[in-house]
C-alpha cells in the first residue's frame, strides 16, 4: 500500500504540465485540510464550518514567523499548525456544551469573523509591527525540498501522507477509542471513565493542527497569501465536499481535494464555466446525506468489495 503510494508520488508529478502541477498542489493541500474536517465529522459526528478559516490562521502564522525569524519552512509550518490547533480548540470549546446545529453555527460565526478580521489586516508580507504588512510584498521562499512545482507537489503529497498517518495513529490509540464512545453516547463515555471534555477538545485541536499544516503549505507554495482565499463560504464548501467525497476513508479526502480545486480548474481549462460544478456538488451533497452517508469513496469501496466477493464466489 505505502509502496504504491510512494511510487505514485514519485512518478505522477513528472508527467503533469505546469497548469496541472499547480492545480494538484492546491488539491492536495485542501485534501489535507479536509482530513481535519473529517476527523470531527466521521469520528465525533461534529460539523465544523471553520476549516478553511483555520487554514488561513496557519498560513498567517507561518508567514509572520518567516518574516520575523527567517527560520526554515518546516519550523514555521509547525508553529503555524500549533497556533492553528490552539485556535481550533478555542472555537471548539463551546462544543463541550453544545453539539449539532448550534455547534455548527458557532464555527460558522467563527469563520465569518475570521474572514472580516483577515480582510482588514491582510496577510503578513514583510512589513513591520505585529501585522507585518508592507506595501511591496516580499515572497516567502519555497521549502528547500520543494523549489520547483514538481518537487513541491511531491512535498505536499508526503506531508499529506504524514497527516493521514497522524490521524490514523490517533484513531487507533486512546483518543480514537474515546471518540468512538463519545460518538455513541457521552453519558456512556463518561460512565466508562473517559474524559469527554478533553477528548473532544483534542479532536478540535487535531483538526486545527492539520488545517494549520495546510495553510503553511499554501503559503509555502505561493509565497504570499490573500484574504480572498479564505472566506466563510469556502469553509462551508469544503465541509460539503468532505461529505460528498466521503469522510470515512482517505480516498474520500483525496476526492474532496480534487473536487474542491481540480474540478473547477479542469472545467475552466476546457472552457466550461466552473460554476456549473457547484450544481453537481450541491446535488452530490443531497445525495450523500439522503442515501450515501459514506460519500463517493464509500460507494467506490463498496463496489470494489462486492466485485471481489463475486469473484471469490465464482
Amino acid at each position: 500500500m505505502l509502496l504504491s503510494v510512494a511510487a505514485l508520488i514519485l512518478i505522477v508529478p513528472s508527467l503533469l504540465d505546469a497548469l496541472y502541477l499547480r492545480v494538484f498542489i492546491s488539491s492536495v493541500i485542501f485534501t489535507i485540510a479536509a482530513t481535519g474536517t473529517a476527523v470531527l465529522y466521521a469520528r465525533l459526528g461534529l460539523v465544523s464550518l471553520a476549516q478553511v478559516a483555520l487554514v488561513g490562521v496557519g498560513g498567517w502564522v507561518t508567514l509572520r514567523m518567516w518574516h520575523a525569524t527567517g527560520l526554515p519552512f518546516e519550523v514555521n509550518m509547525l508553529a503555524g499548525a500549533i497556533i492553528s490547533g490552539v485556535v481550533g480548540m478555542l472555537i471548539g470549546l463551546p462544543a463541550l456544551r453544545m453539539r449539532g446545529l448550534f455547534l455548527a453555527l458557532i464555527t460558522l460565526m467563527g469563520a465569518a469573523g475570521f474572514q472580516i478580521l483577515v480582510t482588514g489586516t491582510q496577510f503578513p508580507n514583510g512589513g513591520d509591527g505585529v501585522l507585518g504588512i508592507a506595501v511591496t510584498s516580499i515572497f516567502m521562499p519555497r521549502p528547500l525540498l520543494g523549489e520547483s512545482d514538481e518537487a513541491m507537489l511531491r512535498y505536499v503529497c508526503v506531508v499529506a501522507v504524514l497527516c493521514f498517518l497522524l490521524v490514523e495513529f490517533n484513531r487507533r490509540t486512546r483518543p480514537g477509542r474515546a471518540w468512538a464512545l463519545i460518538r455513541k453516547s457521552e453519558a456512556c463515555a463518561m460512565a466508562s471513565g473517559v474524559n469527554v471534555a478533553f477528548y473532544k477538545a483534542w479532536g478540535f485541536a487535531l483538526a486545527g493542527f492539520i488545517a494549520g499544516i495546510a495553510g503553511a503549505l499554501l503559503a509555502g507554495t505561493l509565497g504570499v497569501l490573500d484574504a480572498t482565499t479564505f472566506p466563510a463560504s469556502e469553509s462551508i464548501l469544503l465541509f460539503a465536499l468532505t461529505v460528498v467525497g466521503g469522510a470515512y476513508h482517505w480516498l474520500g479526502l483525496v476526492l474532496t481535494g480534487l473536487l474542491f480545486r481540480a474540478a473547477p480548474a479542469v472545467l475552466n481549462d476546457i472552457g466550461v464555466n466552473g460554476h456549473l460544478a457547484y450544481v453537481i456538488f450541491g446535488a452530490g451533497l443531497l445525495h450523500a446525506l439522503i442515501t450515501a452517508p459514506t460519500g463517493i469513496a464509500g460507494q467506490i469501496l463498496d463496489g470494489l468489495t462486492q466485485l471481489a466477493k463475486r469473484r471469490a464466489g465464482r
Binding site: 504540465d17 505546469a18 497548469l19 502541477l21 499547480r22 492545480v23 492546491s26 512545482d149 505561493l222 504570499v224 497569501l225 490573500d226 480572498t228 482565499t229 480545486r261 480548474a265 475552466n268 481549462d269
Partner: peptide
Amino acid sequence: EDDQWKPEVAGQVASKLVKD
C-alpha cells in the same frame, strides 16, 4: 485567461500560458 481575482487561479493560468 481569466484569473477570477484569485491569486491561486492567477498562478495557475499564468503557468499554463507561459510554461505549457
